[in-house]
């Protein structure tokens, strides 16, 4: 009854037919590994991403802004949680995934290794960093692995206010006092290039990209997404009267796209390698929360075990 089938070919056929891969389906080891690496990096980015923004919760300049920021940072915890859950469907426990973050073995988005220095940085992060993240996330709603795609759909739904609240902050600052305008421009100056780096290396230097595209984990290349982001964001900056810090930025009538300058890739690889302004602080903060939470987690388990025993008796 069973014909000899090539598992790998069958797998690729499903992908080509736009069928989702589900946890119990056969999948190549490399596909599983790529997903575990990518989804856990994504999860870590959400959780580490809480830190630079959380830095301003106690200092938000109005109660409305404070409530919005709390809700946003909380959403990121939720998104980390959804993504850790997606990793668990691949057979890797949250504990293991988080251990890799705490030990420094796992990476997260380098953008979160930059410091939030003024209130305007909260605006810039929402507008640019979330804006860039959303480009990626919208694409990932169609990724080939079912649980990842489903998590992304939920995340995209929730994220829709994140970028808007950031842009609103920037817009209000730009219409504010001279000092506020300067604060907004300074934040844009500092966050613009790191935001472009969020899309990853150029396609030419992105070794895993081709395979990920073939598996439909990724559906658009780094450079494509980056270009779309630029094309959209330049217009938004104009509307609120801010200047993109790129002297080479220029509309190209031929390509109907913006031409733009060059990313400082030395900085990019430096931060990835651990030499960003806040790499050590971020790692220390996550480790501290984990270590200081241990007795709390243990207490809950001990209590649950006691109660289960009493119930059984």
């Amino acid at each position: 009854m069973t014909e000899p089938i090539n598992l790998e070919e069958g797998f690729q056929a499903k992908i080509d037919a736009e069928l989702k891969i589900e946890p119990k389906d056969w999948m190549p080891d490399a596909y599983r590994k790529t997903l575990v690496r990518q989804i856990s990096q994504h999860a870590h980015s959400e959780v580490v991403g809480m830190l630079p923004e959380g830095n301003w919760i106690t200092r938000a300049p109005s109660l409305r802004r404070k409530a919005i920021l709390l809700a946003k940072v909380q959403d990121e915890a939720g998104h980390g949680l959804y993504l850790y859950s997606a990793v668990e469907t691949l057979g890797t426990s949250r504990e293991k995934t988080i251990d890799d973050l705490l030990s420094g073995k796992a990476k997260y988005s380098s953008i979160f290794n930059y410091p939030t220095l003024t209130w305007a940085d909260i605006g810039a992060i929402g507008w640019l960093v979330d804006g860039a993240a959303i480009m990626n996330q919208v694409m990932l709603c169609r990724t080939s692995y079912g649980p990842y795609a489903r998590a992304m759909v939920r995340i995209c739904k929730e994220e829709s206010f994140h970028q808007r609240q950031g842009y609103e902050i920037m817009s209000v600052l730009s219409k504010g006092t001279e000092e506020q305008q300067a604060m907004a421009q300074d934040a844009l100056d500092r966050w613009w290039w790191p935001s472009l780096m969020m899309f990853g290396p150029t396609d030419a230097n992105s070794p895993h990209s081709a395979q990920s595209m073939k598996w439909k984990i990724k559906r658009q290349s780094n450079d494509e997404l980056r270009q779309t982001f630029i094309d959209r964001t330049v217009q938004q900056a104009e509307v609120i009267g801010l200047t993109i810090p790129d002297p080479e930025l220029k509309w190209n009538e031929g390509t109907k796209q913006y031409d733009w300058g060059t990313i400082d890739w030395t900085e990019f690889y430096d931060v990835v390698a651990g030499n960003g302004p806040c790499n050590k602080e971020r790692s220390a903060a996550r480790n501290k929360a984990h270590d200081e939470g241990e007795w709390v987690r243990n207490a809950a388990m001990a209590y649950a075990a006691k109660k289960a025993k009493q119930k059984a008796a």
Partner: peptide, 13 residues
């Protein structure tokens, strides 16, 4: 609010 991002476990955060 000082706890946000530093809780003992994500769910509790």
């Amino acid at each position: 609010g000082e706890w946000c991002g530093h809780g003992p476990v994500l769910e509790e955060d």
